[in-house]
């Protein structure tokens, strides 16, 4: 769900680029009205395609059960009910799953930021050989198909008793989120003038103090952006959680949602409502911090 919302944002970004191109083409052609009309038509189509799944799920979550499975399906909702939402919120296991998600995503974020910030600072500041190779290796980790390592990880985790604990998901999520964290933070740290740390060191700070009291506060916007991106990644993670956490009490929402099924029927409405509840906070988060997140993703790409 969040992925589709993200795609929606990306589309908007592209559309803005297109708008610029159209605008610049205006003066010469004289077909300004037509091209700008076309622009809005395509813009609308793009947004519709990206947002449609989310809207559809939202529709499913607010209509009555009979309409969910109606043939042919209705485009616009015909009946309204809060039934699906009351189902999920009265379901203790869903609430527990939400809390599990928050814990797993939250701890993953903190762990990633801690190790990511230290590693990124070292990479950004220290002079050493093969720096690019190190960066490439870090990136290569995230190229690994998760499926390929999931079986060995399962065996290892079982051997040390981590299966069905939050840590199994947190560790696996951290492995895959850390490269992104490091890459974004490196570009943020590189943008801070080294003079500031030198000034701090001369002022009597140890390297760690200079990092904590000067660098981290200055890199706060970057650290914050990275935190949001990491949190979203961990929040949306499904594969590791579904594999390592098979006891209901520790499962995050991504794993719980498909289980809104009774023995005889699947409650699609409740699943849709759960999906909306899980997605909306992320969409709000992204919308609020959109500008910062974009700057985080492109930091260092262009010198301001």
């Amino acid at each position: 769900m969040a992925a589709s919302a993200g795609a929606g944002n990306a589309t908007r970004g592209n559309a803005q680029g297109a708008a610029g191109a159209v605008g610049s083409g205006k003066g010469g052609s004289g077909g300004g009205t037509l091209s700008s009309a076309l622009f809005y038509v395509f813009l609308f189509l793009f947004v519709l395609v990206s947002v449609a799944p989310l809207l559809w799920v939202f529709k499913m979550s607010i209509v009555q059960k009979s309409e969910v499975t109606a043939t042919p399906p209705t485009i616009l909702p015909q009946s309204f009910t809060g039934q699906s939402y009351s189902t999920i919120f009265s379901d203790a296991s869903f609430q527990k799953a939400l809390i599990n998600s928050i814990i797993i995503a939250g701890v993953t974020t903190v762990v990633c930021l801690f190790f990511g910030a230290i590693a990124a600072y070292a990479i950004a500041r220290l002079r050493f050989n093969f720096k690019n190779l190190v960066m490439t290796l870090i990136l290569a980790i995230s190229f690994f198909p998760a499926v390929a390592i999931i079986a060995p990880l399962f065996i290892q985790f079982r051997a040390i008793g981590l299966i069905n604990t939050y840590w199994s998901a947190i560790i696996a999520d951290t492995v895959f989120a850390l490269p992104l964290t490091i890459w974004i933070l490196v570009s943020f740290f590189k943008e801070l003038p080294p003079d500031l740390e030198e000034a701090a060191k001369i002022d009597g700070a140890t390297t760690l103090q200079a990092f904590r009291k000067v660098i981290v506060p200055l890199a706060a916007p970057g650290v914050f952006t990275t935190a949001i991106l990491t949190f979203i990644f961990a929040w949306n993670e499904f594969l590791f959680a579904a594999t390592f956490l098979y006891e209901e009490s520790v499962q995050p929402v991504t794993v719980r949602i498909p289980n809104f099924a009774t023995v005889y029927t699947v409650d699609y409405g409740a699943q849709a409502a759960a999906a909306v509840v899980v997605t909306v906070p992320l969409v709000i988060l992204v919308l609020i911090f959109q500008r910062r997140i974009v700057s985080g993703l492109t930091a260092g790409a262009v010198k301001g």
Partner: peptide, 18 residues
């Protein structure tokens, strides 16, 4: 270390903590 030398430095671009 610089902090152990008891010297103060003024930088070209000031390097004030923003």
């Amino acid at each position: 270390q610089p902090r152990e030398r008891d010297i103060a430095m003024v930088f070209q671009n000031y390097a004030l903590y923003p």
